[in-house]
């Protein structure tokens, strides 16, 4: 299988299980490489936000381990920054920085830098409860990169922002990525496709697809098949650069293949007794747009 190869992950989630009242919320393993930008996609209730909270240490898995290669600094940009904080940006960032343990001189310099970068100098002494959503989202990022972190987690960072703010944001994220910061984002916007190196698609709390972003920019086809009986399909026999992704669940199999090789794969599946449910061109952008909505 042409899967993403990870050598020295920054953070590793090993056989993570999260359930609530018997309901399975998350059941996966995942590694995140230093310096990579990973997008997490999925429909409502697929477990995106839970996964981000577990990566950030805000929630604990019921089973499995979260392993960090070293003691990593994290920054978290939540979906929907609080709207009614009665602090000015400077007061707020001073609070967060001091709580984080940053020294005052360093903190003051850093806040000055960030206010310039995010063009918020003019409102730096105004209380944030009068700010627009775009301005608050900037504060959300500023508090997350104050330290600055090794890993930046962003939950729907572009949600509810106007086109101009989204554009500003993309530039900021690009620059953070260029600085070597590891980014993990839960996103829907196709505009972020060019930013990420890798994406995973969650379905019912499981990793449905784990691909490098550059791979899915190429044309692909999806073959969906089912098996009437329990037949163990030897998927390795059909990989060899032909199959880009395999998703298997009970008697259901979904393959992402290069269009030129789809006939060969279809023939193989039919010979093995599979029923072909559908064959269609895979449109990467469609995968993003059909996952709109948060969980």
């Amino acid at each position: 299988m042409n899967q993403v190869i990870l050598l020295n992950p920054l953070i590793e989630l090993k056989s993570i299980k999260k359930y609530y009242k018997e309901k399975n919320i998350l059941d996966l393993s995942l590694s995140i490489n230093p310096g990579e930008s990973l997008a997490i996609l999925g429909a409502n209730g697929s477990g995106k936000s839970t996964l981000l909270r577990i990566i950030g240490g805000l929630a604990l898995p019921n089973r499995g381990k979260v392993i960090q290669s070293k003691k990593i600094e994290m920054g978290f940009v939540p979906e929907g920054f609080p709207r009614h904080l009665r602090f000015t940006p400077v007061e707020y960032l001073l609070h967060m920085g001091k709580i984080h343990g940053l020294s005052l001189p360093l903190l003051k310099t850093r806040i000055e830098e960030l206010l310039n970068l995010f063009q918020l100098q003019k409102v730096s002494r105004q209380r944030m409860d009068s700010f627009s959503k775009g301005m608050l989202q900037k504060i959300a990022i500023m508090q997350a990169i104050l330290h600055p972190p090794d890993l930046l987690i962003l939950d729907e960072p572009l949600s509810g922002l106007d086109a101009q703010s989204q554009n500003d944001f993309l530039h900021i994220l690009q620059s953070l990525k260029q600085q070597g910061m590891t980014l993990v984002l839960s996103v829907h916007e196709p505009s972020l496709l060019n930013l990420v190196d890798r994406f995973i698609v969650l379905r019912n709390g499981r990793v449905h697809m784990d691909r490098m972003a550059k791979d899915i920019r190429e044309p692909s086809m999806v073959i969906e098949a089912t098996f009437p009986q329990k037949i163990d399909i030897d998927v390795t026999a059909i990989q060899q650069g032909v199959v880009k992704n395999i998703y298997k669940e009970k008697d259901y199999l979904e393959l992402l293949v290069t269009p030129g090789n789809s006939d060969e794969v279809l023939l193989y599946l039919l010979q093995k007794g599979a029923s072909i449910r559908s064959v269609y061109y895979y449109e990467p952008l469609l995968e993003w747009t059909k996952t709109k909505g948060g969980d």
Partner: peptide, 13 residues
């Protein structure tokens, strides 16, 4: 404390 802000305070502390 706002629930989202509480998460941020936890991350920083």
């Amino acid at each position: 404390e706002d629930s989202i802000q509480h998460q941020l305070t936890l991350i920083h502390s």
